[in-house]
Nucleic acid binder design. Structure first.
Lengths: 342, 342
DNA sequence: ATGTGATTCGAAAGCGATTTCGGCATCGTG
DNA sequence: CACGATGCCGAAATCGCTTTCGAATCACAT
């Protein structure tokens, strides 16, 4: 069915080896024969079969992408979808395809690492997984080139969003508008979360605001419902916060609707902050004040690091890309209500 | 580096063939040796290499996914991301991995079909492409099993959302609330669009509403900005509509903010309808009345059809899955304002 | 003993490519 | 004219696995 190298060799009366070498730009092929080979290849629609080539060369031009699976939201998470999209585009530019890595393929109980070997991927991008899981650690510690996003392993390349600075900027913005009772609803345990909490603390102290333990609440990323619940709890405190920073934009949406249920106007009665900078923040009323993470750049950078590591195993070291996050003021964080100023 | 079948054969003193046959459940292997092979395989961490197996059997257990690329929004489109997510999960259950198919891989100008052959995919799911493009037609007409989503080719399996019924239900909902000046802002040319327009017309006529040409406007899917612009145009008409149905939920968001800019309350002054049933519709104020498309089920069904076709090439015919869409009432479509009733 | 059938295993070819190494012209040079 | 150098190409091994077909063994009936 498919046209193979044999067809090309037969058609131009050359050996298989010669055709192969013509395709791989070997020096011992004359310009004319190289031209002949390429021409006839084009005529009969020949492309070297990636599978056969991989078997022989051990280079698949295929990259693995590891997405979290414990929670359902893999691809549907807009931030990670953007990262993946950019990663994919950049990979394609360099001739790499991508495949998802998982650990429940078929009946077999393959680990992530085993799945990678099974498919012969040249490298893996760990996008959003539980970085503390044994299986992930095993993969990262293996000889397969790895790049991680939003988590740093020693001796491996990674791309990080500037979470500390981003969070500090958000707190500074709120403080500049007079807020001193600032609450932070954070997501689950992860590097990202730790860094944002650090940024939150630093932001507070830089503006001489002392931290109230009740104002730090754990919630779940990307869950409007959990976000709404957190807001209800906070507003039920004896002295509720005047500004609530949420783990992400979807949670902020949940916060907005919780506020409405409570009869509170945003930002007149309470201010709400988001994180991520997803498109929806610009379409809500009020527009959500958020911190934009440059997902496109993160995905692109990850691809560049990974491919560099694959193609230049000696020279390429483990790089760490810090991608700046930018405050995007909306209307959901406003001046502190006067009766609340202290 | 990697452990091969040879290692297993050496370790248990059996030939390579025997090990292979033990793994593939051949009948001429005794229960004891089969057990021995599996045990030692487990001990030294052996998994058959997918690449080598593919080369020999011409079955890659790899499925291609074709996403639109002309516009940037591939993975970031929430509806398609959901479809893909479900497709992926179902495939993994059956032991298939998935790879993205595109036509600008590296420097080579491969067509979609060539890319599929290059990677030896067992089948392809065309999710959101320009179904009229020559390249796509070529792929669909080839011998590679194909399933399409939201577009039907003769003699190929497909999964369709019930767009006509969905749209009719939406119109009926608006009509029941007294609306007779109903506008429809539709997306670009595509089967989906045609069907929804058909549903729109039918809905109107079923309720004895005559169609006003100015009330049918073309916009772009998933573009709040374009949606907002369409709303501005509609509301500038001599007799503006009382209810505007948008191509999707994101566009509906754009419509909401356009209405706000115009000083119109939703739904008191004008009603807005969405489509898709994405999560955000439940978190806006007002909540958006929309039609839920069961993206999960669509993706799952596509995977089932495709794998069936691959694994049972004789018996499996070309199936057509119609997935019902369901009206999800929110608050953005309300009763017609009294001064507008005619 | 011999033949028969069932059971279990191994040798070897081959999937489509890459890559080493050697062969054969051709050519310049002493 | 001989000889080594150079340029160009092909034979064959190989990657890790599947699968056909024949061989070996054993039991059992003849």
């Amino acid at each position: 069915m498919a046209v193979t190298i044999k067809d090309v060799s037969a058609r131009c009366g050359l050996s298989i080896s010669t055709v192969s070498k013509a395709f791989n730009n070997y020096a011992d092929i004359s310009a004319e024969t190289r031209e002949l080979v390429h021409r006839t290849a084009r005529e009969i629609g020949y492309y070297p079969n990636a599978i056969a080539r991989t078997l022989k060369t051990n280079r698949s031009y295929n990259l693995g992408v590891l997405f979290q699976e414990e929670r359902g939201t893999g691809l549907t998470h807009s931030f990670f979808a953007s990262v993946l999209d950019a990663f994919k585009s950049e990979c394609e530019k360099h001739g790499y395809d991508i495949t998802f890595i998982n650990h429940n393929i078929g009946w077999t109980g393959m680990t992530y690492l085993e799945h990678c070997r099974y498919r012969n991927v040249d490298g893996v991008c760990v996008v959003c997984a539980n970085f503390y899981a044994a299986e992930v650690v095993e993969l990262v510690a293996s000889d397969i080139p790895v790049v991680t996003i939003d988590h740093a392993f020693s001796n491996r390349s990674c791309v990080l969003s500037e979470n500390i600075e981003g969070m500090k900027a958000l707190v500074a913005h709120a403080a500049a508008l007079g807020h001193r009772r600032i609450a932070y609803v954070h997501g689950e345990h992860a590097s990202v979360t730790e860094n944002r909490i650090t940024g939150f603390y630093r932001g507070l102290s830089e503006h001489g605001i002392e931290h109230v333990p009740e104002y730090l609440l754990e919630s779940v990323y990307d869950s409007p419902e959990a976000g709404a619940e957190a807001v209800r709890k906070l507003m039920a405190l004896p002295t509720p916060p005047t500004c609530i920073l949420m783990p992400d934009d979807h949670s902020a949406l949940g916060a907005l609707s919780a506020a409405k249920e409570l009869g509170l106007r945003v930002p007149e009665d309470v201010s709400i902050g988001g994180y991520d900078g997803s498109r929806i923040t610009q379409m809500t009323q009020p527009r959500i004040t958020t911190v934009v993470q440059d997902a496109q750049r993160m995905g692109r950078q990850a691809a560049i690091y990974l491919i560099d590591r694959i193609e230049n195993p000696r020279t390429a070291g483990s790089e760490m890309g810090l991608i700046p996050a930018m405050l995007q003021p909306g209307e959901s964080i406003g001046p502190v209500p006067s009766q609340h100023q202290d």
